[in-house]
Amino acid sequence: MKLSTADVDYVAKLARLDVTDAEKEKFTAQLNDILGYIDKLNELDTTGVAPMTHAIAVTNAFREDRVVESLGTQAAVANAPDPRGEFFRVPKVIE
C-alpha cells in the first residue's frame, strides 16, 4: 500500500497538524518507508490469535468511592495560556 501526499494531507487533518508542503513531501516518503517495513507483519498468519492489549493481565482497578481532596480550580487553570477566572478562554468556535 503506497501513501500519496493526498493521504498524508488527510492524516495531518485528522491529527490536527498544519504541516507545510515541504513536510508533506518528506513525511510521504518517510511514512512509506516505515509502512513498507511494517508490511512484514503480513508474512505471519495470525488467524485465531487473541490480540494482546496489555503487558500484564489487569482487570478493572476499582477503589473505594471516597471523597478526597482535589487539585482545586486555581491550580487547575494556573497553566492555561489564557485563563479567565476559573475558565479556559479559547478563540471563537462558531462564525
Binding site: V11, A12, A15, L17, D18, E23, F27, Q30, L31, L35
Partner: peptide, 20 residues
Amino acid sequence: KTRQEGFGAEVKRRIMIGTY
C-alpha cells in the same frame, strides 16, 4: 497551528503514523 509549531518533526511523524 499550536500543534504544528509546538511539536518537532519526529513527534509529528509518529503522530501521523499512529493516526493513520
